[in-house]
Design a binder for these strands. Sequence first.
DNA 1: AGAATGCTTCGATGAGGAACGAACTATGCG
DNA 2: CGCATAGTTCGTTCCTCATCGAAGCATTCT
Lengths: 224, 224
Amino acid sequence: MREGPDIARIASLVGDPARANMLSALMGGTALTASELALEAGVSLPTASSHLSKLMEGGLLTLASQGRHRYYGLAGPQVAGMIEAITGVAASVGPQRVRPGPRDAAMRVARVCYDHLAGEQAVAMLDRLIDKKLLLREDKEIRLAPAAASHFAAIGISVDARPRRPVCRACLDWSVRRSHLAGTLGAAILDKILAEKWARREKDSRAVVFSPAGRQAFEKVFLA
Amino acid sequence: MREGPDIARIASLVGDPARANMLSALMGGTALTASELALEAGVSLPTASSHLSKLMEGGLLTLASQGRHRYYGLAGPQVAGMIEAITGVAASVGPQRVRPGPRDAAMRVARVCYDHLAGEQAVAMLDRLIDKKLLLREDKEIRLAPAAASHFAAIGISVDARPRRPVCRACLDWSVRRSHLAGTLGAAILDKILAEKWARREKDSRAVVFSPAGRQAFEKVFLA
DNA sequence: AGAATGCTTCGATGAGGAACGAACTATGCG
DNA sequence: CGCATAGTTCGTTCCTCATCGAAGCATTCT
């Protein structure tokens, strides 16, 4: 028998279809109410409530009560990273989807991963930032290069000097199978993309769709 | 309802305690036989076989048949990364599970791990054996040095020349977070410790408690 | 206050699946 | 060959856990 962290307990929490759907929905980064999650998972409200309390007990979710609304969200980046990792395995070994629908294609190009951008665009961006020596890949870690602070400040992104969580983190992309940028910097860049209206979030999906002009602007700033 | 990779299917594979134990055991990187995995997981051979075929069907394992032995291993780095991610979440969420009581303190010092010794004592022992160049750490593998056979024979431990299972294996210690020695050699050493009455097993626990004299003897032989 | 909404708890039902023993197949040994 | 070891398959038993309806709290609206 093995000792150590109870990985089966965590995995079995994700291993139920209803709960997995809820967690996937929460990967969008926005907290959702119990009713919304019930709808998302395709179960009744009592069932959803039961699942949510299990996820809470397991430490995978956070809860913010506001009046009669109770907003559930992912407990943190570590949980989000785990979900992405599982998604990656599921995507590469899973029963190959017969037809990758239009939405799936959009997802592959760009999507929200908890609070930052993922997909081909995001992977390309990280590659380019490392190419331009603004970020340094060290083993599996990513660090800011000296030139980074001023460069991002010029774009309008301030890099927190004393962050509560890492500024840069590598997050494995399930569709491209290579890392993209997470951490506060990754989150700030996504914020900018949406604030500048270079792209909009697809309704009820994690997909992020760039407008033609937005894509040009994005490429000029991050892929030049 | 969500669409996309079937993450629940993958997670539920990991979500069974027996399968989780098997996967954890395989995180060492060395392929193991069905019987070894049955022991690791603490289930009967038929049960283990059933689990293994499910993991195979799920694409999480690879199989290498050699004669009547069937060696199961993790399917790849992506799968290993996923297990690691889940373990990370479990570890950061898990500590709330049990408060370190007196027995847990003893467990941290020395305990039985399947058939060999684990805990601080075991980690220190492996370090010392490598220091003395009796064992060679090669990447994640551990091998016998030429001098090993005669050295262990002098202590009264015969190293099987043609073992049914690996003589040396690295086993990650959950309390120290570093490797200790598993495999037939690890098992033989534990046998000796108990046979010499240097230590006894705590009733209904994996803890191994050394007597004062026993500890001295152990340290003289293995930590000198 | 009363009604409406959002969510949780309770209780009963049902299905999936984890477990093992026994029997069967396959490989190796003498 | 016969015997031993390594694994799988089969059939049965059993128990967990997901599910939903109904009822119970809590909060807000009017």
